[in-house]
């Protein structure tokens, strides 16, 4: 009977920290979470404000003048927002597809085939991971100008079609695939391409999914390269479209933030639906996007 008579709000009871250590941990985690979440809150809050209020010294989360409708209406209806989304989609999927087509056979060869120079080749792949895009972007840009392919989907995808990171990731993953199955397949008459298609690929689904999430998010969020090679509005990606409200003389911050919110939204929604996949993608690739 004493059990039933016990203090009623047991949800509060559950929240009560079990020890000082736990309390400290919780506070630290809470602060960490705040650091992560605050920029988003700020972004959403600013997207509802008029420009002059965004960097007002008298800062508040709740906008004093609500300009949310104007900002969002402008972003979604006064510019071809769906075209931007489609451009982002085409570029991200295109990059991902070609990355998979190039990386999987390369990774299989590095992981499972014995050939002269494979160690050196793999070392080169590792070394290539360290080269940032900024180093190669000028020669790439000049090259694209020369062949007259600036402002095309091809130009937006070209630098990313071979991902050394994908080669590295898949190579590590494929190394765990049993050699005996590959040998059995060779005895049974599989060609190497069939070994990849019929045996390696089905077993690599987790790695492929993980890398897909990683690659898709990275290129969805990429501002740098589209900014360099895209000139016309009909080739703009969603992320790039945020830049439209900036000019040398004046920046409409309210709309820029509204635009940022709208661009982030598809990723956030996708994350909510496929949270497990995202987390696996980020932990497996070992890189926070």
């Amino acid at each position: 009977m004493a059990d039933i008579a016990a203090p009623a709000p047991n949800w509060l009871d559950r929240l009560r920290p079990k020890s000082i250590g736990r309390l400290v941990t919780t506070i630290l985690l809470f602060l960490g979470a705040w650091v992560m979440v605050f920029p988003f809150i700020w972004m959403i809050s600013s997207s509802l404000k008029p420009t002059d209020e965004v960097y007002d010294s008298d800062f508040s989360i709740i906008p004093k003048t609500f300009k949310g409708w104007d900002n969002y209406y402008g972003v979604i209806f006064e510019q071809p927002y769906l075209i931007f989304l489609m451009n982002s989609m085409i570029v991200c999927l295109g990059i991902l597809l070609i990355q998979l087509v190039t990386a999987i056979p390369a990774a299989y060869a590095l992981a499972k085939l014995k050939f002269r120079g494979s160690t050196i080749l793999f070392g080169t792949v590792i070394a290539a991971i360290t080269i940032p895009i900024n180093v190669t972007s000028i020669p790439l840009y000049i090259g694209l100008v020369r062949v007259g392919l600036l402002d095309t989907y091809f130009a937006m995808m070209f630098p990313f079609i071979v991902s050394v990171f994908a080669i590295f990731l898949f190579r590590q993953f494929f190394r765990g695939f049993p050699d005996s199955i590959i040998q059995a397949a060779r005895v049974d008459g599989f060609s190497e391409i069939e070994i990849i298609l019929r045996l390696i690929l089905p077993s690599a689904v987790p790695a492929i999914a993980a890398f897909s999430v990683f690659s898709f998010v990275a290129h969805w969020n990429d501002l740098y390269w589209p900014l360099i090679v895209v000139q016309s509005q009909d080739k703009m990606t969603a992320t790039l479209s945020m830049m439209q409200y900036q000019s040398a003389f004046d920046t409409d911050y309210g709309r820029t933030y509204a635009s940022a919110t709208v661009v982030t939204a598809p990723m956030v929604i996708a994350f909510l639906f496929a949270r497990r996949l995202f987390i696996r993608g980020i932990t497996m690739t070992g890189v926070k996007g």
Binding site: S180, I181, Q183, A184, A185, V187, D188, G189, R198, L199
Partner: peptide, 26 residues
């Protein structure tokens, strides 16, 4: 020449029937 492996080396994503059919298909 046919070979049976220590860990059996069955193709994990195929059914038993598909596993056995593979050498003939190939």
């Amino acid at each position: 020449i046919a070979m049976v492996f220590q860990d059996y080396a069955l193709y994990p994503h195929m059914s038993v029937g598909e596993n056995m059919a593979m050498p003939l298909v190939m």
